[in-house]
Design a protein around this nucleic acid. Structure first.
Length: 592
DNA sequence: CCCCCCCC
């Protein structure tokens, strides 16, 4: 049987280091007020005193959730740090447990050892015995951390979990687990550039940002996966809207900040802390939540190029279907170079930190952000476990996907709906809805079908003829000597239940015009409006249209805007005369 | 002091 280290708590709470004390756990409490995820506060005893100013480092949370640190269990505290907190206007010491071994499980001990009483750990003079008085006095003059030294260096470091804006004399020893590129900004308050990085040590994690001069000074020397000593940076409250790390604070480098590479870092600084959730849990999460998942790539799409309707920018994306042992699938969208480079059909395991949950068409999906970290086939036990599951069972399993994508919509049978159903279900009125219909084109509107657009690569805005040989783009705020003609297709689609005006842009407009009106009319230039004099008449060929419907406000009025975002020609002979007659009757349009 | 992170 282990005996408890009697007197350890009094010493620790008065700033005296105690080597690997043996303590008994008497209970725990989840702190719900923390905005930085779950934290656990422990009630511990050394047989003489009980102490509730004890916290568990967040990466040890699983020892509570997995029922390891149960009531009465006897544990050895291998490493701890003292953090000063403000408790009702008073500085109070809190012991943060960084490394703990369970020695005897609670059910074997079965009872409280000894008759411990409440400790008075805050250095009240009457409870402060001689040897610690000096420490306490120092502490009141200048906040000081009492931290065990790291094993391999002479620099006394502070655990990240103990950092706060109220203290500035600290050195952390941390690993860079991710680093952004350099980004510039320009707004009403000024302009500049910045990069940010995420730091971890064995106690926790924190985001660190460098602006302007510091950006230049530090960017090149800092490498992902390497360990550094960092000091003299400032701390401020983290904005949880943009920062998902488990820390209430974030760090900003200043002109005084010092960063020194640590070449002899052993395994004491972890690489990256994940907080994996099963894919099946994503369904219950909110859109925009950031999550970590460990999953197998079940399939992955080709690289897709598209033009953002909002910004006009060209984008590259790739969809990746992920599964885990919950046997639920979710679609993850990769962007830019990450999408380009990720072309794998070999079912790698991905450990993903900080993917964002999105909502589309009533399904949930994941998307990467610039801060998302993806490790491919990480060498961790959980990754080997999921690999084993996939190789033996998972690869054969039928999988249900949480995501609604074009791919899995047109695959599944019965996904076609009619316009009557779309209207009856108010599709597009509560956000973006995408659906597929089998329909025909019964009318093309020729006005503005062809317009003069901005010639700059990422802009599609209509230009204004300045009558001096120049064309002005309001969006780019620039004049150009040239322009590009672009297509805008306004078509009335009809099926046997109803009809709908739909707008098509660019590629989709071309596809529709190619398919239905190959003999484009003459170009006419009438002041600033360019239009086609006549279209070839639409024939009653049928197509599968992918429709994007969304209620939007224009001219201060809410209007349903429907856009065609995909078109698949199908054999027009499938349409019979009866159907054509029905469409004519319904729409009053006779193009035949 | 940023805070953008996209598409259907």
């Amino acid at each position: 049987m282990y005996s408890l280290t009697e007197g350890a708590l009094d010493k620790i709470m008065n700033g005296v280091e105690v080597e690997k004390p043996i303590l008994q756990i008497l209970g725990h409490k989840k702190l719900s007020s923390s905005s930085s995820g779950e934290r656990y506060r422990l009630l511990v005893s050394d047989g003489k005193r009980v102490n509730s100013f004890t916290m568990l480092a967040t990466q040890l949370n699983s020892m509570i959730t997995d029922n390891i640190l149960t009531e009465f269990s006897i544990c050895q505290i291998n490493r701890y740090a003292i953090s000063m907190v403000n408790n009702g206007g008073k500085q109070k010491r809190v012991m943060v447990i960084l490394n703990i071994d369970m020695k005897v499980p609670g059910e074997q001990v079965g009872q409280k050892i000894g008759n411990p009483t409440n400790a008075e750990p805050d250095g009240d003079s009457k409870s402060t015995p001689g040897q610690s008085a000096q420490t306490v006095q120092q502490g009141s003059l200048m906040p000081k951390y009492n931290v065990q030294q790291t094993s391999t260096s002479d620099i006394a470091t502070t655990p990240i979990v103990a950092l706060s804006p109220y203290h500035n004399r600290w050195v952390i020893k941390a690993r860079i687990v991710s680093k952004s590129g350099i980004r510039t900004w320009s707004n009403s308050r000024g302009e500049g550039k910045l990069f940010s990085m995420d730091l971890v040590d064995e106690s926790g994690e924190i985001r660190c940002t460098a602006f302007r001069d510091q950006c230049d000074k530090f960017y090149d020397m800092l490498e992902v996966d390497k360990v550094y000593y960092i000091s003299k940076a400032t701390l401020k409250s983290a904005n949880k809207q943009f920062n998902n790390l488990k820390n209430d604070y974030e760090m900003t480098l200043t002109g005084d900040s010092e960063i020194i590479p640590c070449h002899d870092a052993g395994n004491d600084i972890p690489s990256l802390q994940f907080d994996f959730i099963p894919i099946s849990d994503i369904e219950q999460k909110q859109a925009n939540d950031l999550i970590d998942v460990l999953a197998i790539v079940k399939s992955c799409s080709d690289l897709q190029m598209l033009v953002s309707r909002n910004t006009g920018r060209d984008m590259k994306k790739r969809n990746v279907n992920l599964v885990d042992e919950s046997n639920i699938m979710v679609c993850l969208t990769l962007w830019g170079t990450q999408a380009e480079e990720f072309n794998r059909s070999d079912n790698p395991v991905l450990a993903i930190k900080g993917a964002r949950i999105g909502e589309f068409n009533g399904g949930k999906n994941l998307s990467t952000l610039s801060s998302t970290v993806i490790q491919i086939d990480p060498d961790i036990p959980a990754a080997h476990k999921i690999r084993g599951w996939f190789n033996t069972l998972g690869h054969n399993e039928e999988t249900k996907s949480l995501s609604r994508t074009f791919e899995n919509m047109s695959e599944s049978t019965g996904s076609l709906i009619t316009f009557a159903e779309a209207k009856a279900n108010n599709l597009g009125e509560k956000g973006v809805d995408v659906y597929t219909v089998k329909a025909t084109i019964n009318l093309l509107r020729s006005e503005n079908a062809l317009y003069r657009s901005c010639p700059s690569e990422n802009c599609k805005k209509k230009v204004i003829d300045q009558a001096n040989g120049m064309f002005r783009c309001e969006k780019c705020n620039k004049e150009y000597p040239n322009f590009n003609y672009r297509l805008l297709g306004n078509v009335s689609l009809a099926d046997w239940t109803d009809n709908l005006w739909v707008t098509t842009f660019n590629d989709e407009a071309e596809k529709i015009l190619d398919a239905t009106a190959p003999e484009l009319g003459e170009l006419k230039d009438n002041d600033n409006d360019v239009f086609l004099e006549k279209f070839g008449s639409a024939t009653f060929k049928s197509f599968i249209f992918k429709i994007r419907a969304k209620m939007e406000t224009f001219n201060e009025e809410n209007k349903l805007r429907t856009t065609c975002i995909g078109i698949i020609p199908i054999d027009y002979r499938a349409y019979n005369k009866h159907l054509i007659a029905k469409i004519k009757e319904l729409t009053g349009i006779d193009n035949a």
